[in-house]
Amino acid sequence: MALLEVKNVKKIYTTRFGGNKVEALRDVNFSVEPGEYVAIMGESGSGKSTLLNILAQLDRPTSGKVILKGRDLSTIKEKEMSAFRRQNLGFVFQDFHLLDTFTLKDNIFLPLVLSGRRYEEMEQRLAPIARHLGIEKILEKYPYEVSGGQKQRVAVARALIIKPQIILADEPTGALDSKAAQELLRLFSSVNHDGQTILMVTHSVKAASSANRVMFIKDGEVFHQLYRGNLTDEQMYQKISDTLTVLEAGGEHVE
C-alpha cells in the first residue's frame, strides 16, 4: 500500500481582484511508497512549491485528493491540522526556521513540547538521533553560535524526532556551502537507508541525484520521472541534467 497518494490534484489561484485565474497545478498524479526517497524538480513557476505546500497541508487543492497512509487529508478539520502535521510530517527548510532565543536542543524538542510529550521521552528520542547526526556536543548552543551546516543538522533532528510518516524538504541545501550540502545529502541517504521516507523539492541537480526517484514538474503536471535503479550518483546526475535540458528547450519527450 502506498504511503502517499496524490490523485488528480489541481490548484487554481484567483488574483486579488478576481480578474484572472492562475492554474498552478493542472492534474498531478503520483504515489510514494514507504521508505522511498523522491526528489521533485522543475523550472520556477512549474508548480512544485505549490505542490509541496499542499502536501504539507499549508494549502488546499482546488480539486483532487491527497491521501496519507489511507487517510484523505481533505477530511481533516482546520482545528486539527496543526496536531496532524506535528504527528505525521517532518519539515526541513532552506532557511532552517530555528528560534534564536532557544537552544538547539529546545528547538529540536519544540514539536514534542507542543504535543505534550514528557521530558524523559524527549531525551530518550533525542539521544540516538543526536549521535547519528553528530550534534551531541552542540545541543546547548544557540543557532547564532553554529554554522549553517550544523543548523541544518539540527533542523533534520527536529524533523526526525517526531518519527514522521514522511519528511518534506524544501530546498534543504539551498543555504549551505558545497561541503555542508554534501554532508546533508549523506545524512538524508543514511536516514532513508534506515527506512525514513523523504520527499524533497530542489533546484539542485547534485541534491536530486542522491534520491532514488526524480519527478519533473512542468506546466502543473508530472512531465517525466527518473528511477535510479543501479545508476551511480554520477550517472543519475547526468540523466537529470539531460532531462532538464529537454524541459528548458520545451521538449515533449524524454528518453
Results as ranks from 00 to 15, higher is better:
Ala180Cys: 11
Arg85Trp: 07
Met1Trp: 15
Ser189Gly: 09
Val201Trp: 05
Glu80Gly: 13
Ile138Tyr: 00
Ala39Met: 06
Lys7Val: 07
Ile12Gly: 06
Gly250Phe: 01
Phe216Gly: 04
Gly116Asn: 09
Gly90Lys: 00
Ser82Arg: 15
Ile12Ala: 12
Pro34Ile: 06
Glu171Arg: 05
Phe188Cys: 06
Ser209Ala: 10
Thr101Leu: 15
Arg213Gly: 09
Arg71Tyr: 08
Met236Gly: 00
Gln165Ala: 08
Leu187Trp: 10
His193Ile: 10
Arg60Ala: 12
Val66Cys: 08
Pro61Ala: 00
Thr197Arg: 04
Leu104Tyr: 06
Asn212Val: 12
His97Pro: 14
Leu114Met: 02
Thr15Ser: 07
Gln165Tyr: 13
Ile240Leu: 07
His193Asn: 09
Thr243Tyr: 04
Gln152Asp: 12
Gly90Val: 02
Glu136Asp: 06
Val191Thr: 01
Glu121Ser: 08
Val66Asn: 02
Val246Cys: 12
His203Trp: 02
Arg16Pro: 14
Val246Gln: 05
Ala24Lys: 05
Gly64Gln: 07
Lys206Met: 15
Leu51Gln: 01
Ser209Ile: 01
Glu120Tyr: 14
Ala83Tyr: 15
Lys163Val: 09
Phe216Pro: 02
Gln87Thr: 04
Val28Glu: 10
Met236Thr: 01
Pro34Ala: 04
Ser74Pro: 11
Ala83Gly: 14
Thr103Lys: 00
Gln225Val: 14
Ala180Gln: 03
Leu58Glu: 06
Gly174Tyr: 11
Met81Ala: 11
Glu78Leu: 07
Gly250His: 05
Lys7Ile: 09
Phe96Gln: 08
Ser178Arg: 13
Pro111Val: 10
Ile166Glu: 04
Asp100Lys: 13
Ser190Ile: 12
Ser147Met: 14
Leu133Ala: 05
Glu33Pro: 01
Val38Gly: 05
Gln196Met: 11
Phe84Glu: 03
Phe223Tyr: 10
Asn29Cys: 04
Val6Gly: 02
Leu126Gln: 00
His203Ile: 10
Glu123Arg: 11
Val92Tyr: 04
Ile166Asn: 03
Val113Pro: 09
Val154Tyr: 03
Leu114Tyr: 08
Ile129Trp: 00
Asn29Phe: 08
Ile54Ser: 01
Lys69Leu: 09
Glu36Arg: 00
Pro172Lys: 13
Tyr237Phe: 14
Glu183Tyr: 08
Leu226Thr: 01
Ile40Pro: 02
Ala169Trp: 00
Ile135His: 03
Gly18Ala: 02
Glu120Thr: 15
Ser204Asp: 03
Tyr13Lys: 10
Lys163Asn: 14
Leu114Lys: 12
Asn107Leu: 03
Val38Tyr: 02
Ile67Phe: 10
Lys105Ile: 09
Asn53Glu: 12
Leu168Lys: 00
Asn107Glu: 11
Arg118Phe: 11
Ser190Leu: 06
Thr103Ala: 10
Met200His: 05
Lys11Asp: 02
Gln182Asp: 13
Thr14Ala: 02
Asn20Ala: 15
Arg118Tyr: 15
Ile54Arg: 07
Tyr119Cys: 14
Ala127Asn: 13
Lys218Arg: 07
Ile240Gly: 07
Arg228Ile: 08
Ala56Gln: 04
Ser209Cys: 04
